[in-house]
Simulated assay, not measured.
Amino acid sequence: MSSENQELRKVGLKVTLPRVKILNLLDQSDERHMSAEDVYKALLEAGEEVGLATVYRVLTQFEQAGLVERHNFDGGHSVFELDSGEHHDHMVCTETGQVFEFHNDEIESLQKKVADELGFELTGHNLVLYGKPKVN
């Protein structure tokens, strides 16, 4: 049994060809953050016949099942990435839209400190930084 089939069953989703194809694409792609349109175009280029509405529906099911995370960066469209189980934050280039992942222990510590000072237990956060390349 393929790892994609096992992942789908583990989260309670029936194994269907579109789900397997989309999960495999997300797993194999060099691009970690893909819109539904990106997924659809990549499937078309691979000769796969999966409709755009199906891609949207499957990605939403994956999100609800915890297989992918949805991000709404500036620009208005959602992108999806496989949930790796490891926390990271994002830096988005305002010129190209390219997304970079990073993890910084100092930032994580400061966020916890702020939550403590305000009387909260931090249960999660989403940090997105926006910028453009420095010109030397």
Rank of each mutant, 00 (worst) to 15 (best):
Q28K: 15
S29G: 09
S29C: 08
D30F: 04
E31Q: 15
H33D: 00
S35D: 03
S35Y: 05
S35L: 09
K41V: 09
K41C: 02
L43S: 06
E45W: 00
G47Q: 05
G47W: 05
V50N: 07
V50F: 02
L52C: 00
F62Q: 06
F62M: 02
E63P: 02
L67A: 09
R70M: 04
R70F: 00
H71R: 14
H71A: 08
H71F: 13
F73T: 12
G75P: 06
G76W: 05
H77F: 09
F80H: 13
L82M: 10
L82A: 07
D83K: 15
D83T: 08
G85R: 12
G85I: 04
E86F: 13
H88E: 03
H88S: 15
H90T: 02
M91D: 00
V92C: 05
G97L: 02
F102N: 05
E106W: 05
I107Q: 04
E108F: 01
E108L: 09
L110N: 14
L110S: 13
L110Y: 13
K112F: 00
K112D: 12
K113N: 10
K113L: 04
K113H: 11
V114W: 07
V114G: 07
D116N: 14
D116V: 01
G119Q: 08
E121S: 13
G124W: 04
L127N: 10
V128T: 14
V128N: 10
V128Q: 13
Y130T: 11
